[in-house]
């Protein structure tokens, strides 16, 4: 029972909730946003594999699969902004950021942190890039000539969630060792609480973004 409790941590519950929301709110007409279903499914599967290998198989290392998931998610989140109307002219910038991230990620995986530990250098860089993309997205939204109600715009909510999550995560990953040491000595799960808080913001914003996407594509099929 304890083992099962470990599987359904608050973050995983939030992921499940978002996945169910994606299933309900993202029919075929939402276009590329259906990718979120795959990403969330992959996240849940990876969380389950991680739990299985740690708690059932008693394996010491499950970082490789989380490294892979982190890279796929970061690339997908940056890439999906390519389909936001205000970012129509930023396609090359996004491609460049993705290329930088992938090169750094592969380099880190092969030559620095490797497969056996979580590649938080890569994660931190991904968070910085995502924050840059989100801020740039806000900037181009404000530069548009026509008014756009941002609170009803799915990409705004996505950027909102990603910005908060990435800003918090950058600090979290930079001090990850200190937080783990603190957890070991005091049994206070500071890292987990902060991580859950950030994920709660991320997945909450994503669900709102799904609702907006669903509503905005009711009359016309989206990209």
């Amino acid at each position: 029972m304890d083992k099962l409790f470990d599987l359904f941590k608050p973050t995983v519950i939030a992921e499940w909730a978002t996945f169910i929301a994606a299933l309900c709110l993202l029919p075929s007409r939402v276009g590329v946003w259906r990718l979120f279903m795959l990403l969330l499914l992959a996240t849940i599967v990876v969380e389950t594999i991680g739990w299985y290998s740690t708690y059932i198989r008693k394996l010491n290392n499950n970082s490789w699969i989380f490294n892979l998931l982190m890279m796929i998610c970061t690339v997908s989140w940056i890439w999906i902004f390519r389909f936001a109307e205000p970012m129509a002219k930023a396609s090359k910038l996004l491609q460049l950021l993705i290329a930088v991230f992938v090169c750094f990620g592969i380099g880190n995986l092969l030559f620095f942190q490797g497969f056996r530990i979580y590649n938080w250098y890569t994660d931190a860089l991904g968070d910085v890039l995502i924050a840059v993309v989100c801020c740039y997205f806000f900037y181009v939204c404000l530069q548009e000539e026509e008014f756009r109600d941002l609170f009803r715009y799915e990409y705004f909510w996505l950027a909102n969630g990603l910005l908060f999550s990435s800003l918090g995560s950058v600090v979290l990953y930079i001090f990850i060792d200190a937080l783990y040491a603190f957890k070991k000595h005091t049994q206070i799960y500071a890292y987990d609480y902060i991580n859950f808080g950030l994920n709660f913001i991320l997945y909450g914003s994503m669900i709102i973004a799904f609702i907006c996407r669903n509503r905005n594509t009711r009359s016309s099929p989206g990209s």
Partner: peptide, 29 residues
């Protein structure tokens, strides 16, 4: 360690506040 973690938490809060400030600014503009 308490001092370090407090520092980390404060830094995260500052970062989140920065994000919040950006959002408020965007909404205002």
């Amino acid at each position: 360690e308490y001092a370090i973690v407090t520092g980390i938490v404060i830094t995260i809060i500052v970062f989140l506040l920065a994000g919040f400030f950006i959002l408020v600014l965007v909404a205002y503009i």
